[in-house]
């Protein structure tokens, strides 16, 4: 006997993400989901971002890692609430899911916040599939990874609103072709905003900060 079901496999996650999106909207909070391979500079970008937004916008960070609180410790010097989500308690998941964010958000005072950054687990595949209720997904690609990554991991760059080429202070010493990398992002996502930054030198950070302020202003 056949039983018809026709149900989205990620329905539970999508529903939880929808609730988060409503919660963020009600509290006038901009939620930004940062995704990339491990070591592409998500934490360095956040470190610089928190510094530059201090006094202007009130930020919190939800740190996703399989294990350790090392990233949270790197960001602890900022006056920003931090919630660590370790997915090893969820079976070592390679990505964050909406229910994990819902648990983390409960620990935040939403009235006292303007932006919630979600630093996803370092992984260029899995996080792309899971809606976290964010306003914008940001996919990072560091100059050391090679310009072909948007073509090799197309979903990650298709779903993002903004792609950031990081570690651009290294452009002079690498063979990496930033224009070709940007072109490869456009091949899978012609609508993506593409920024080039260096958290180390501050290059491109003004454009990134302006974008965050603009998106927050539009909330």
């Amino acid at each position: 006997m056949e039983i018809k079901i026709v149900k989205k496999i990620l329905e539970k996650n999508d529903a939880a993400a929808g609730e988060l999106r409503t919660l963020f909207a009600q509290n006038n909070i901009l939620a930004v989901n940062l995704m990339s391979s491990p070591g592409s500079g998500k934490t360095a970008l956040l470190d610089r971002t928190l510094e530059l937004l201090a006094g202007d916008l009130r930020c919190a960070v939800i740190e996703g890692d399989i294990a350790t609180t090392l990233d949270a410790e790197r960001l602890a010097r900022h006056n920003a609430p931090l919630v660590q989500v370790n997915t090893d308690t969820f079976g070592g998941d390679c990505h964050l899911e909406a229910n994990m964010i819902a648990g983390a958000v409960e620990q935040l005072d939403l009235d006292a916040l303007d932006i919630v950054f979600i630093e996803n687990v370092g992984n260029l595949v899995c996080p792309a599939e899971f809606d976290l209720g964010e306003d914008m997904k940001v996919s990072l690609l560091s100059a050391t990874e090679g310009e072909d990554k948007p073509l090799k991991y197309p979903l990650m760059f298709r779903v993002c609103g903004t792609a950031i080429i990081t570690k651009c202070d290294l452009l002079g010493v690498l063979d990496f072709d930033a224009a070709a990398a940007a072109d490869n992002v456009r091949k899978v996502n012609p609508d993506a905003r593409i920024l080039q930054t260096s958290a180390k030198t501050g290059q491109g950070m003004d454009e990134w900060i302006a974008l965050l302020k603009e998106l927050f202003g539009n909330k």
Partner: peptide, 20 residues
Amino acid sequence: ATRADVLAGRDLLVESIEVD
């Protein structure tokens, strides 16, 4: 042109099961 909207191909669905 290279700008296009995806209409299908993002699906992840349980369609049906057969039981006995």
